[in-house]
Amino acid sequence: MNRLKLLIISLFLLTACSTEELPEGVLDQQKMVNVLTDMTVIDGYMSTLMYTDTLRTSGKNYYATVYKNHNISKAAFDKSLKYYSMQPALLDSMYTRVTKKLEAKEKTLNKLQMKEQIKTFQKAPK
């Protein structure tokens, strides 16, 4: 009987926790995943370049473009990242989704590149 009570209380607490509303100004998970995906692309691009003061300035511009494209502010992104960082398991699952989105983008780009190579090969003089 005690186990049943414990199970019911546990389920109630788990359900209550999972429906917790986000604090004001925190991006929902899907929007955050989309922003993190774009940020990761920018980070990857910038890591291929030589670090200079110009790169640091242009990097800020790249990030500002992501904020603008997603209709958010840097403050909202920072607040959201801080919020999700306090929940490591949730943030990890979000980064897993980011990775899947990036892999899908890479696959699409590889297909496009392959098509272009085939076109170029077919047009080449024989």
Rank of each mutant, 00 (worst) to 15 (best):
L36S: 13
T48D: 11
G44R: 12
Q87P: 06
K68T: 12
H70K: 08
D92V: 03
D78P: 01
Y62R: 10
K68M: 07
V98H: 08
Q87G: 02
Y45W: 13
T54S: 12
Q87S: 09
D43K: 13
L102S: 07
T48F: 10
T48Q: 14
F77V: 00
L90W: 03
T54C: 07
M39S: 12
N61W: 01
E103K: 13
Y84V: 00
D38W: 03
M39Y: 15
K79H: 06
L36V: 03
A89P: 01
Y95H: 12
M50A: 12
V41S: 15
Q87C: 01
H70N: 15
V66S: 08
K60M: 07
L102R: 08
M94L: 15
L49W: 06
K74T: 00
Y95G: 04
T54L: 10
R97A: 10
S58C: 01
S80T: 05
K101T: 14
T37K: 05
T52M: 06
S47Q: 12
D92H: 11
N61M: 05
L55W: 06
K79Q: 10
D78T: 04
A75M: 04
T40H: 07
K68L: 10
M39F: 15
T40M: 12
M46P: 04
N71D: 14
T57G: 03
R97P: 02
Y51K: 14
G59Q: 08
D53V: 04
T52C: 03
Y45V: 14
N69V: 05
T99A: 10
M50Q: 15
K60Y: 04
K100R: 11
T99H: 14
Y62W: 12
R56T: 06
S93G: 00
K101N: 15
T57P: 00
M86W: 02
Y51Q: 13
A89G: 05
D78I: 03
M86K: 03
F77P: 01
D38G: 11
T65W: 10
S73W: 06
D53A: 09
S47A: 13
K68N: 09
A75E: 11
D78W: 02
T65C: 05
L55H: 09
A64V: 00
Y67M: 11
E103G: 07
A104K: 12
Q87I: 01
F77S: 00
E103S: 13
K101E: 15
M94N: 11
S58A: 05
G59A: 07
Y84N: 01
S47I: 00
T65Q: 15
N71H: 12
D43T: 09
T65S: 11
Y51D: 10
M39L: 15
T65L: 09
T65Y: 13
T37C: 05
V66R: 05
S80E: 02
N61R: 07
T54D: 12
K100Q: 13
F77E: 00
E103P: 02
T52S: 14
V41K: 15
T96W: 04
L90D: 04
S80W: 09
L91Q: 09
A89K: 10
D53S: 11
K74R: 05
R56G: 09
Y67F: 14
M94W: 05
Q87K: 15
L55A: 06
L55K: 11
L91C: 08
T96F: 07
A75S: 02
N69T: 08
K60E: 10
N61H: 07
Y51W: 07
I72N: 09
D38F: 04
H70I: 02
